Every structure is written in structure tokens, then in C-alpha cells.
Computed example of a mutant assay.
Amino acid sequence: MLLDPDAENDVAYELCQLLGRAILPYHRTGETGRDVAGGHATAFFYRDGGRDWLLTADAVTGGAGELGLRPSVTEPAGAAPEALPVDGWVRRPDLGVAILSAAELERRAGEGGWAWRTQPVVEVIAADAAVVARVGAEPGSAFVLALGVREEGARPLEVAIERVVRVDDVVRITAEIPAGYLGAPVFGVEASADGGVALHCLGLVLPGGSDGHPVATFDRIRAALPGASDA
């Protein structure tokens, strides 16, 4: 579904309001893999069946890395560190996705005297196989919610309004994304049964180039979660 520019801007604004605290900046600090997008990526929280997971692109998670702790995603103010070293990703290079249980992150927060204050992408808006199958060859509106990279190192909250298509049975964003967007959630829209617009999280951004980026779709991500019956 392709929206007009005003409607796209409205969706982008709502995404920032509703899910701005779902995403965190991730930075690969080890030497291995730093050549992929400069080691900068976006990770996001996803809630499935009452369990929370952190997701990002596998390409940046093979060595040491850290999550930037934005002030808006922790409480009380000033209690959390600026960054949190992370490891233990469940890597799925076949899908291009890395998965981390949020339980360990919650434990470390408790030990440090602070707590998470997040807005995870929830199961009801994560695209199932039927939604993914409806992405076709005609471009549709897509929205990438990410943390960009500024020259001075700042990671601002951004939404890139793009186009999504299916090419050779692969869901793709048609344009090259800015630095820091690797691993970020990609949202698409379709007409709802009541004549409105339904928003779905299609998946996350994988490495690509000037001709665009493939998307790891949520039907496959959900099946890959540890403990999933068909993982």
C-alpha cells in the first residue's frame, strides 16, 4: 500500500511516539565486523508471548559490542550507565538476525539499581506469514525507525520513509539506508478490514548497498526465537 506524503508523515510521527523507546543504539566495539556499517546498528525490543527479546542484524554481533542507554529508556534518571556491554547473542546468520533474551538485561539493570522503561514492538503488529506474502512487486510505503549516526557521535531518533517491494521472493527496501540503520525495524502498511490503515512490523534491515537492503521478515524471526516450536 502506497500512502500519500501527508499520510506517510503522520505514520512516521506516530511511530516515534508509540515505539520510540523500543530501539537502542548498538555499536560493535571489537575489530571483527567493524567494517559492516562502521559497526553501528540499531537494536530493538520485541515482546512475544510475554517474553521480551532484543533483535538486531547478525552482521554486527560477532564480537564485543555495547548498547547505548538513552535516558528515555531507563529509570530513575541518572542511575543507568551511558552504555552497557553485551554479548551472548543467539546468532542466526542464515536469517541475518541476532537475538538476545531481555531477561539478562533486566537482571543487570536490577543489580545496577535501575530499570528499563521501554516500548517493545508487540506480537500483534509483527507481520505473520500472510502479511509478508502480501508484499508484492509494486512499491509500498515503508518506515524504518532507527538511531542515526552524526559526525560527533550522537545517535538521534529518526524515521526514514522508504519503499518496500518483493524482488525474487525477497522483501527489500529499495534505497540505501543511512549509517546506524542496520538492524532497525521496518514497518509497512496495508488496508484494514474497516477501510483504515493497518500497520505491521515487517522485520529488520539487513546489510545491502546502493540498490537497497533485504529485510529479515518477522514470520521467520518469530520461528527462530529460542524455544519456538518450529525454530
Rank of each mutant, 00 (worst) to 15 (best):
G78H: 14
E82H: 15
A83L: 02
L84T: 05
V86L: 06
G88C: 03
W89M: 00
W89V: 04
V90D: 08
R92Q: 01
P93A: 10
L95F: 05
G96W: 13
A98F: 03
I99A: 07
L100G: 03
L100W: 15
S101K: 07
E104L: 08
L105I: 11
A109E: 05
G110N: 05
E111R: 15
E111W: 15
G112F: 14
R117G: 00
T118V: 14
P120Q: 04
V122I: 15
A129G: 04
V131D: 12
V135N: 03
G136S: 08
G136A: 08
A137T: 07
A137Q: 14
E138K: 14
P139W: 15
F143Y: 15
L145P: 01
L145F: 07
A146Y: 15
V149C: 04
R150Q: 13
G153A: 07
P156D: 07
P156L: 08
A160Y: 10
V165C: 07
R166I: 00
D169K: 14
D169A: 12
V170G: 06
V170N: 09
R172P: 01
I173P: 05
T174Y: 08
I177P: 00
Y181Q: 06
L182V: 01
G183K: 07
P185G: 04
F187C: 07
G188V: 03
G188Q: 04
V189T: 09
G196H: 11
V197P: 04
V197I: 11
A198M: 12
L199C: 03
H200M: 05
L204I: 02
S210F: 10
D211R: 15
H213I: 02
H213F: 07
P214E: 15
P214H: 15
V215K: 11
V215Y: 12
T217F: 12
I221M: 07
I221P: 01
A223K: 08
A224C: 03
L225I: 05
